[in-house]
């Protein structure tokens, strides 16, 4: 293992985040606060408890997931897209690094930032609503698994994208709508039966509900099912990355 090489990429990426540290952290704090002002106070007051959980607390896992998806995809894709764009990728490709080590450096750093943002949101949310987390260790592990998975997904997008606008396409047009429709702010039990059936095809439902279960011990889907779905997505991303490095797709001519 070339641990020094992995560490070099990780540090380089973390250094990039540090350059924009304050905006990077201010955005999730402000966004979360706004969500609580709008959903928590304005609408939440008119909402009843969902499955025995007050509405304000109910939306916290969804909010964390929403930001985690966006951050992970963005950082995972930008990290590998930048060197492709500027041409500095030559150095990564000519270094004595395996595919695993390269991905570990980039995805590790992106996941670190994603996790940090998610935890900042949790801390901010805690200022607005009382929260007790039923399975804190599982919550952190699950958060880490989702962060790694979406950073790998981002890595694939970063390799696939031909320009900066393409980096935005999948997060904006697919992931964000699926998250909003995936029960981030409501329980799918509140939907008419037909829509509920349709919603179950949305993979994000499983991610959000699995995470919500670690908070409250209840959710719309069984935790086991959610875990299987999350692992399945993680494996699909791993397979995608394996294929990229095996074929050199858009990395090597």
């Amino acid at each position: 293992m070339n641990w020094r090489g992995v560490w070099a990429i990780y540090k380089f990426e973390m250094h990039r985040f540090r350059r924009t540290l304050w905006t990077g952290l201010a955005v999730p704090v402000i966004t979360t606060s706004l969500y609580f002002v709008v959903f928590g106070s304005a609408i939440g007051g008119r909402m009843t408890e969902i499955g025995g959980v007050p509405y304000g607390a109910f939306i916290v896992p969804g909010l964390m997931m929403l930001s985690l998806f966006t951050e992970s995809i963005f950082n995972g894709s930008f990290g590998i897209h930048m060197p492709r764009f500027t041409g500095t990728i030559y150095e990564i490709l000519s270094a004595p690094l395996s595919a695993f080590e390269t991905v570990l450096g980039y995805v590790g750093a992106a996941a670190t930032k994603g996790l940090t943002v998610a935890l900042v949101i949790l801390a901010t949310a805690h200022l607005f609503v009382p929260l007790t987390i039923e399975h804190p260790v599982l919550m952190l592990l699950y958060l880490a698994l989702v962060a790694l998975t979406f950073c790998m997904f981002g890595f694939i997008i970063g390799v696939w994208a031909k320009g900066f606008e393409q980096l935005q396409v999948i997060p904006l047009l697919i992931v964000t709508p699926l998250t909003f429709l995936g029960g981030a702010f409501y329980s799918i039990d509140m939907l008419p039966p037909t829509w509920r059936q349709i919603t179950l095809f949305n993979p994000v439902v499983y991610l959000i509900n699995g995470f919500r279960w670690t908070f409250f011990g209840t959710a719309d889907v069984a935790f086991g099912t959610a875990l299987v779905a999350t692992f399945a997505f993680a494996l699909a991303c791993l397979a995608g990355i394996w294929w990229i490095f095996r074929t050199g797709y858009r990395l090597k001519a």
């Binding site: 020094r4 090489g5 560490w7 070099a8 380089f12 250094h15 990564i92 690094l97």
Partner: peptide, 14 residues
């Protein structure tokens, strides 16, 4: 200095 040190580390040298 950072970019040159980065290259050294990337290639696994102390």
């Amino acid at each position: 200095l950072n970019t040159v040190s980065f290259s050294r580390e990337l290639f696994g040298k102390p």
